[in-house]
Design a protein around this nucleic acid. Sequence first.
DNA 1: TCGTACAGTGTACGACGTACGGTGTACGAA
DNA 2: TTCGTACACCGTACGTCGTACACTGTACGA
Lengths: 224, 224
Amino acid sequence: MSGKKKRQVAPDAGLSKQRVVMEAIRIADREGVHGLSMRRLAGALGAGAMSLYYYVANKEELLDAMIDIVFEEIELPPAETDWQSAMRRRAASTRQVLARHPWAISLMESRTSPGPANLRHREAVTACLRGAGFSVLMATHANWLLDSYVYGFALQEASLPFDTADELANMTEDVYLPQLPPDEFPYLNESAAALVAAGYDPAEEFIFGLGLILGALEPLRASA
Amino acid sequence: MSGKKKRQVAPDAGLSKQRVVMEAIRIADREGVHGLSMRRLAGALGAGAMSLYYYVANKEELLDAMIDIVFEEIELPPAETDWQSAMRRRAASTRQVLARHPWAISLMESRTSPGPANLRHREAVTACLRGAGFSVLMATHANWLLDSYVYGFALQEASLPFDTADELANMTEDVYLPQLPPDEFPYLNESAAALVAAGYDPAEEFIFGLGLILGALEPLRASA
DNA sequence: TCGTACAGTGTACGACGTACGGTGTACGAA
DNA sequence: TTCGTACACCGTACGTCGTACACTGTACGA
């Protein structure tokens, strides 16, 4: 199946699976998965819609390929540091990448079989944990726990309607609070007020939960 | 706007927003959001497609309404127990409900404004945490952390291609392992083997991570 | 010169969301 | 009894979607 002979062509002329998937990601980043249609994608590549089907079997396969490219962007846990720093690095990278491609999160639910980049990532993380002294069972637990946190955080962050602290303050005062009668929602009012007063940084919030989880995992490894 | 006079009708004749949304959920549960179209929904209700637009402005609003019904199904943290038990109860309920309606998770990403049931849930959780002695700031942290974990877990669980332990064993042996050359993925092979040997229960996995998080949060409250 | 594989296309079909302009029925007022 | 109005609902039509199918031109090995 592999080892196709390629005719020599100008390096960026013509289509390729790579180019198709990349452009698809660019469109999805700009307008969401909803804005990604085969015709639009083909148009952006200067091709006819049906040409795409030479490179992908169908749209599902295109989406799978897009997801896997996203996973390729995620930094693997570096080998030269302690396990906590390594986990911090890869978790932060995951959050960043998923924030850049929010559509990827909602796609994950429906795509059941992990792509190669996904597998490589899992392998590297598991290796790091096992190397740090976690048992097979405990490494599995840690994997689930950490991934749940990172994906869940990304999911929540993606559904936030604002990107900056200013926008947050505006949104909270103009849209959010009017929906929250203080007698019915005293605690949400309290915390909304505190958020507006103190400012709010998702990155900090992320670090907090991550640190707490890592700290709680630490005593569960059998330090060699 | 409110206070419409309803003509008296046989109680289950004719449509209603309630009936429309409920049937939509039933279809989505059975066949995923992908299988939910206005025409199919109308057909299932014995109505014409355009009739639905009397009750919902458009499909987006329908999806919003569906999500909020899902949130209504989630148990609020009970008031009469300690905060950890309360959080366990509502987290377990959330996981169950999201497992019952997997489509809801992928919808959450794109729906930016929380519905009333969602708000009531947040209020109750925040009240519980504040009552347990967490500061405003710490309650916010705990909220993000717990929700991230629960949603992320549900997201991962939804993308598992199996429902029972037997299916897991079969899937792992027949589909998963053949994709994993042992020299390239030694650790994933190791953990896959361990999983098949020991059996695997998502509910247990969920409890583990949740317990770890709750335990780590415990010392962060100012016990009154 | 020719057969074959590659790379890409045009047309067409059924399904989708929904704008628009209906229709019948029940009710309050006259 | 009549009639205007609001309600609940629907048929048709438009543009867009994914993609099956049959097609074309080009480059290469023989």
